[in-house]
Design a protein around this nucleic acid. Structure first.
Lengths: 217, 217
DNA sequence: ACCTGAACACCGTTCAAGT
DNA sequence: ACCTGAACACCGTTCAAGT
């Protein structure tokens, strides 16, 4: 009854020295598997065949550990800016690339979104977004504001998708149902994909209309 | 160096019996003051002049406690649906009323947004939102989808505001700055208010344009 | 029915001691 | 420089015992 879980390596000691990056990578694996709440310094050390206290020679504390893991996962973000496409396509592609990263690390991303420092000015996502808005003709001094709102909107959509709220809300009845009405069908994955696409379209449309208003004035 | 904090009542015992609602209310006070992470069963018991174990006779565990606190705070939500106003005004007012609740309990709301169950079908917010969309002419079967997207968008904006990300992003330079450029000024509270309003306008505008598209087809 | 003390199985982190 | 064992000050929760 008490074996077989991550058993293959038994209790041997490490043969390679601990490194900061190796610690972050192992922590990311554990978070992907079991969530941020289940990550403890002690379990992480066990995953690395190390003494729990050894970690503190490479990482000052657990909060810094989580920050490092977030940076590591963030470095996976890849996107291709294409000058031959309209800015709308570039914004759309950024959001979709962000979403695919979020799908690879849902537990981490949900946690990271609640932290104030999860997007940095040198992130490719931020650079891509501000670049696309510049191409769209948003006045230079308005770009940070508009980018900020878009970041907030995308992250809200992603969090709601990742934690299942979006799926649940989709399945709610429009009005409080009497007991005799049929349950609405549960939303399928394809529905969530479609809804994300629709929300993205609407966001870009809203942006276009704001832009048109500004130009007209 | 170690006194005076919540000292007035000393270590006397309770004179009124513990109740589930009283426990939630005390937990909400502690969360408002110090955040969700700092709330422990033991500190909560101390706040109530009770033995830590007594709490378990009214609340099954800490997760249920947080759920109860979320329900209590949610019950503070108030809004006035007005049939004499256009649906856009009703949606705007719902979002602003939601925001004012979030401002009263920022620590709790930030935490609750990451949970999948934070909006229930009988919440006045959900009923108001679906009602307004019905008045807007959104087809009955599309209402849950559209409401879900709006919930996700509003919550994203609120989380980004509450944890300070919105303010930070606003202050970022549009392009990576050289070392000689001046720091952009930090965003003030009025800026955040204004940006929330703009984002809300843009969201409603996006909704209107989606609606117009649907009608035209 | 409601409360309580002791205890269990955990946490993050400090620190002195080892190599 | 890097690692380690023991220890400290906490956690959430169980359980048997009290009233």
């Amino acid at each position: 009854m008490e074996s077989a879980r991550k058993a293959p390596r038994g209790t041997r000691k490490r043969d390679t020295p601990l490194t900061e990056e190796g610690i972050y990578a192992a922590a990311l694996r554990l978070i992907d598997a079991d969530g941020v709440k289940a990550l403890t310094m002690r379990k992480l050390a066990a995953e690395l065949d190390a003494n729990p206290m050894s970690l503190y020679h490479h990482v000052p504390n657990k909060d810094a550990l989580l920050k490092g893991v977030a940076r590591l996962a963030g470095s996976e973000f890849r996107t291709a800016e294409r000058n031959d496409l309209p800015w709308q396509e570039n914004v759309r592609q950024l959001a979709l690339d962000f979403r695919s990263l979020a799908h690879r690390h849902p537990n981490l991303v949900t946690h990271v979104f609640t932290r104030p420092d999860f997007i940095q000015p040198d992130d490719p996502f931020w650079r891509g977004l501000t670049g696309a808005l510049g191409a769209a003709g948003v006045p230079e001094r308005e770009i940070p504001r508009v980018s900020a709102v878009l970041c907030a909107v995308f992250s809200g959509l992603l969090v709601a998708e990742l934690n299942g709220a979006l799926r649940r809300w989709m399945s709610l009845s429009p009005m409080p149902t009497g007991p005799d009405e049929a349950e609405p069908p549960a939303a399928a994955e394809a529905d969530v994909d479609a809804m994300f696409g629709i929300a993205l379209d609407a966001t870009i449309a809203g942006l276009e209309s704001q832009l048109a208003d500004t130009r007209r004035r």
